[in-house]
Amino acid sequence: MGASYDFRIPRMAWIDRSSASIRYSFLTVNYDDFRDASQSLGKFGVLPDEPLAPGTEPLYKLDASVLQIFFSIWF
């Protein structure tokens, strides 16, 4: 989702129009056949306390946020 706001900059006649915008998205990726191997191989060389057997780790899932903030001028 996003919002843009149009405004005028005083004393800058060469700019026809300006706007400020912000956009935010949230994405969720669900893998069907990619497992969280850190639960068996460990993280950065450190093994987990109770390593799972390969192939029994939970499926991996990724949540991410994406932010854009931008200013635009038309001339």
């Binding site: 991410a64 994406v66 931008f70 200013f71 038309w74």
Partner: peptide
């Protein structure tokens, strides 16, 4: 295309 200039900051955060 219209004459314009844009400046953006972008950020991805996940996984």
């Amino acid at each position: 295309p219209e004459e314009r200039a844009d400046v953006m900051y972008h950020r991805y955060d996940g996984g």
